[in-house]
């Protein structure tokens, strides 16, 4: 549905986006991750046709954004960063205007506005002027605008920014639900969000894609991924550790805490976490350890994120 090839953008001498390529099909939700200034917003602005790329190709459905922008834009719903809207309009007036520009008039317009209002829970503020709304409502109003024409492609720039935890949850549910039928790109700083919503995540750093995979695949890149943590109610940490070290699939282990005992075992291969956990389970029952917890670490996205996006000299610092 979205095909981006070798997208580049420079502002004067500064390179904002440097050769980004990816494709998204219907039913996929792509999370865009990256530090501030990595080029996420610039990439989204190019995909939506707001700014022209310096180089590269953008295809929305079968339409080329550069050669046939109007047809391409029809397929897209866009929530820009900070969710701008016309402050002097009422929520209803704004949505109806957006629907009209999307070519919906008369009854179709009314239906589209009613649907968007219902989906975004805007009923209570329908006739209020947008400037009097709280940030959450403003955000949802702009979001409602982006889905008003039920687009095949949704581009959301930090859709949960500035929302309270309940609203964040609602927004994620909404994105996940719509992701079943649409191609969605959304950017975020919140890593749990990626796990909760995305089918695939891309990490951008300094204008380039540095990682691309399912959240699970990305987490496997973490040092902790596949490690097995064992917590016991009693016993001695040193004794337990020496036993664990004898398991052939275990590369090494560390003591997390002496009392109560907690030991983490790292497998030789990240994928063999299951094997290690099974071996530990057998060992525990044989040794009659009182197991409180036995868990395979999934790896942590924030760790992977930091590992990939920090400049090399900073990585050293955080390790120390």
């Amino acid at each position: 549905m979205i095909k981006v090839r070798n997208l580049k953008k420079h502002f004067g001498p500064k390179v904002a986006v440097n050769g980004v390529s990816f494709t998204i099909e219907r039913g996929e939700v792509l999370g865009f991750l990256g530090p501030n200034g990595a080029g996420k917003s610039t990439t989204m602005r190019m995909i939506t046709g707001f700014i022209p790329p310096s180089e590269g190709e953008i295809k929305i459905g079968e339409f080329d954004m550069l050669k046939n922008p109007i047809a391409a834009k029809r397929l897209i719903g866009y929530l820009p960063e900070n969710a701008p809207s016309y402050a002097d309009m009422s929520v209803h007036g704004f949505l109806s205007f957006a629907a009209e520009l999307r070519g919906l008039s008369g009854d179709a317009n009314k239906r589209a506005v009613a649907r968007a209002i219902e989906m975004c829970f805007l009923e209570p503020v329908l006739h209020q002027s947008i400037e009097t709304l709280s940030k959450g409502y403003r955000h949802r109003t702009c979001f409602a605008q982006s889905i008003i024409h039920d687009p095949a492609v949704l581009i959301l720039d930090e859709p949960t920014d500035g929302l309270d935890p309940n609203q964040k949850h609602e927004m994620r549910t909404l994105i996940r639900r719509m992701g079943e039928k649409k191609a969605i790109i959304f950017s975020t700083h919140i890593l749990e969000e990626v796990e909760a919503v995305c089918s695939r995540a891309v990490i951008i750093d300094r204008g380039q894609i540095v990682a691309n995979g399912t959240p699970r695949e990305l987490k496997m890149r973490s040092d902790q991924a596949g490690a097995v943590t064992l917590r016991l109610l009693d016993g001695s940490a040193a004794a337990v550790k020496s036993k664990i070290d004898q398991i052939s699939a275990v590369a090494r282990s560390i003591v997390l805490s002496e009392s109560p005992v907690a030991v983490r075992a790292f497998p030789r291969q990240k994928e063999s976490g299951d094997e290690v956990s099974r071996a530990l389970g057998e060992m525990a029952s044989k040794e009659r350890w009182k197991v409180q917890e036995l868990r395979i670490e999934e790896g942590r996205l924030d760790e992977v994120f930091r590992g990939i996006t920090l400049p090399d000299n900073k990585k050293e610092e955080t390790k120390k």
Binding site: T48, I76, Y78, E81, A87
Partner: peptide
């Protein structure tokens, strides 16, 4: 100033 230009020019209008 309000950023609505981004909204307006990503609509299907020239």
């Amino acid at each position: 100033r309000l950023g609505t230009i981004e909204l307006l020019l990503t609509m299907p209008v020239t």
